[in-house]
Design a protein around this nucleic acid. Structure first.
Lengths: 156, 156
DNA sequence: TCAATATAAGTTGTGCACAATCTATTTATG
DNA sequence: CATAAATAGATTGTGCACAACTTATATTGA
């Protein structure tokens, strides 16, 4: 008779909140993928476009701050959005280190189509407004705790 | 005087729960990265090892079911774990389509070191047991809703 | 003024994720 | 039994993420 492989519950996969959030994130991306594909975007590209529809004109590092992404991720992503003619990149004349990202006419026009995305996703996140706000609150405090812990590690 | 760029709140980045979960997932991975690096694992590799510490022996597709990953992701990942001598792969003699993944001595030994991971992550997920279980419940019902919606799309 | 430092963006290399395809094996069916 | 269909796993190609490095420009301060 052999001992059970993992008697200690601390390492059980299903006890890990991180595993739940890992699956949740991929599930959500799965849900967005076919809907965003219809308007020619991936999920990270959609987030960039959301940021630009709010701000029209951002430097690469401002976008990075907004989305918590570095130039190693953004540079090639933005190149693809430029190839798709949704955005323009222009060196700033004031400070030639900066590259300013702005929407093209096609990028601005895409916003009308994107308005159909949230309804198409449906109510799978929350079945009521109350639930939505409760969840939003929980997730935001969880996010803050993790980011604070990370920042503390960075410093200490 | 120009109109605000995004008067419609449905496309505001910060109103998207998905964006919160996207950042949360990356924040959590950031938190695990340095801790797991000390025992020579990435975060997805850690999840695979957790599954194997529970089951000792799994086929590639059983692992895929457990983690919701396909062979396109698992094959190269398992190859890296094999190179690191944490796991072994062996063709099943009963059904030669199957590849059985099992732990090496080194892989089993790694479990003792991994026991230090959850304490090292600390209490950034929940500050109390009650909060932990509440969060776990919320996330699991959210996950189920999204997966159900995805499955419904698949069918319909 | 001009050398040290800092900042912005891009590049390179590694490792997931996932779609699409391929090969080998097994099971189902005529 | 022979062939069609299904299944398991690997491979290829694309697109993030992120670390480490490079180049160009700006800022600083001796």
């Amino acid at each position: 008779m052999t001992k059970p492989a993992a008697p200690d519950p601390t390492l059980l996969l299903d006890n890990q909140l991180c595993f739940m959030i890992y699956r949740l994130q991929r599930s959500i991306t799965d849900r967005y993928r076919p809907i965003l594909a219809e308007i020619g975007l991936t999920y990270p590209q959609y987030l960039v476009m959301l940021a630009l529809w709010e701000s029209r004109r951002l430097t690469v590092s401002q976008l990075g701050d907004r989305l918590s992404l570095d130039s190693g991720t953004l540079s090639p992503l933005l190149k693809r959005l430029e190839t798709a003619a949704f955005i323009q990149r222009k060196r700033s004349t004031v400070d030639e280190r900066l590259v300013e990202i702005s929407l093209t006419a096609r990028g601005r026009a895409l916003r009308r189509q994107a308005l159909a995305v949230p309804p198409a996703i449906g109510e799978c996140f929350a079945s009521s407004a109350d639930e939505y706000w409760a969840l939003r609150h929980q997730l935001s405090s969880l996010l803050e705790r993790v980011e604070t812990a990370n920042a503390a590690d960075q410093a200490g």
